[in-house]
Simulated scan of single mutants.
Amino acid sequence: MSINEISRDEFDSLGIERHGFFPERAWFRSTELNLAGTVILDPFDKDWSYVLVAKDEDGTYRYIEGEVSLPSHQDAEEKLFMSATRIELAGAFQEELYTEPESAAQDETSLIITSIDDEVKKYLKKHPERLYELSPRKFEELVASILKDMGFDVELTQATRDGGRDIIAHVRNAVCSYLTHIECKRYAADNKVGVGIIREVIGVHHIRKATKSIIVTTSFFSSDAVKEAARMENQLDLKDFTDIKAWLQRY
């Protein structure tokens, strides 16, 4: 195994952009691949997470894998080592990570920034780490498009408004109309959605009398947020980065 612990200064020298706010406690780097990782402590939930990043063709390190809400520093390190070792041993994964199909590489910026279509969803299926590069509004458009493909009639609320429902979705038939409000949060991988957002969405849910509310995030949810949402188990769903990746598998 070629995953070695390094100093923070060595990690910083890689030029990896930080998007989160929680303190890093240990840093690692592969001697075989342009692969690095860090173990992070959540000072609020007192749990641990890890993040793995890899160097892309443009020289930028981007998120490829991670896990949150782990019980201890040791658990986070073990998970990081297991994931990094699996990536190293896969061999073929290196090519897939660093080499993009010619069609996707030709105009990557316009692919992500213009309209959301099936080609964009196919691209994000192969490169889910690029979800973090979408603007918040484009992330909302992506979620709306996926829901439309699932059979919902969707409406995006105005981009300037922040009223706890970025997307209004209906399933209508001859018997009933099923109203769903969706709140989208395009957060960094280690910036977990907290209990405050859950309470805001619950408040709007009751005021607007929706059948169901859903919070969708590129990140994950704090343990307090999960507990709060459980009080409305049949009316509020939480969808995180793992769920979005599962949705994209249909494309």
Rank of each mutant, 00 (worst) to 15 (best):
Q158L: 00
R8A: 01
D107E: 11
P71S: 10
Y251T: 10
L238K: 09
T242P: 00
Y132K: 13
L248H: 02
A36C: 05
L35T: 06
I167M: 05
E77F: 00
R250C: 03
A174C: 00
A26M: 07
V171E: 06
K126Q: 09
D166V: 01
S30K: 00
A188Y: 08
A174Q: 08
V204P: 01
L89H: 07
L124M: 09
Q106T: 14
I215F: 10
H206M: 08
L35D: 02
M150Q: 14
K138P: 00
T38M: 13
F28I: 04
D149S: 12
A92Q: 08
W48F: 15
R25T: 13
E78R: 15
N191M: 10
T160V: 00
F28P: 02
L97R: 10
T85D: 11
E140Y: 02
D56K: 09
G194Q: 06
V201A: 09
A26S: 15
V226C: 08
H19T: 14
E108V: 10
N4T: 11
A229L: 05
A188C: 05
D117W: 04
A188G: 15
I215T: 09
G151N: 11
E108S: 06
R250N: 08
S223M: 07
S177E: 15
Q235W: 04
N173E: 04
T160I: 04
M150N: 05
D117S: 05
F93W: 14
Y123D: 00
Q158D: 12
I40C: 06
Q74W: 01
K79I: 02
E57M: 06
E57V: 12
G20D: 15
R86H: 09
A210T: 14
S213V: 12
H181G: 15
F22I: 11
Q249G: 05
A229V: 05
S72W: 02
L147F: 13
T217Q: 09
E155M: 14
Y98L: 12
H73N: 12
S2K: 11
R86G: 06
L111E: 04
A246G: 10
M82W: 00
A210P: 02
E17T: 13
V226A: 08
Y132T: 12
E100Q: 10
E10M: 10
H127M: 07
E32C: 01
A159Y: 05
E96P: 03
E77Q: 14
W247D: 07
Y123V: 00
S213P: 02
V171K: 14
